[in-house]
Amino acid sequence: MLELTRITAGYDRRDPVVRDVSLHVGAGEAVGLLGPSGCGKSTLAKVAALLHRPDAGTMTLDGTVIRGWRHRAPREQRTAVGVVFQQPRLSADPRLSLRELIAQPLRSTGRRRDVPERVAELARSVGLSDELLDRRPHAVSDGQLQRACLARALVLRPRLLICDEMTAMLDASTTAALVAVVERYRAASGAALLAVGHDRVLLERWCDRTVRWDERETEKGPAGPVTAGGGLRPPAAPR
């Protein structure tokens, strides 16, 4: 499904956050990428979500080599990957109601007629009431907003879902509820999952397989090149 090979990425070419990392997610597979905060795993997730152009390395999605990121990627490629971020407050346009939030991808892709039906369907599956759908982000809790963000990521039926610390701000019950929504969707659609996070217990319980970001990476940021650990393949070159 997703093949990242020797990806180097960051915000400064001289000091990339991600160095030479490879990662593989098979069709229908759920992979957990485990690493401390600030290690670059979120940047890697953005590369995989076609939102951040890597400085080096190759990526294939469903066997197709990716040539461009963000708006340089064809719309079909972008919408094949759904993404949920850590902070629901920053992930939601503050001016839009939750209903509009979930509907945005449908509108962006010219599927306006599907809006009422799909939004209702998604709202039901993530457990948002009709009354909540009419509220704007500032009037709902983090948990409720993250439910809407997950619904938005699922509304175009992605073949790969990327959850970047999706539950880091949430309590145990909401975490379990959102994971259950993702797993129901995956069971029904056969979609693959890349769950990025720092909670080992959670990712091991959730995913088929977890991959550890190199242990030498400390929370201080990239002190040296990242090498691949455990299940990363192919084994990255030693520093």
């Binding site: 919408t79 920053l90 346009d93 945005q104």
Partner: peptide, 22 residues
């Protein structure tokens, strides 16, 4: 740089749409 713009891009929004709508 807000994630909600990333989310819009991921959701298939065109460049114009991102500027005009968000």
């Amino acid at each position: 740089s807000r994630p909600f713009i990333d989310a819009a891009v991921s959701g298939g929004a065109s460049r114009t749409r991102v500027i005009v709508r968000h």
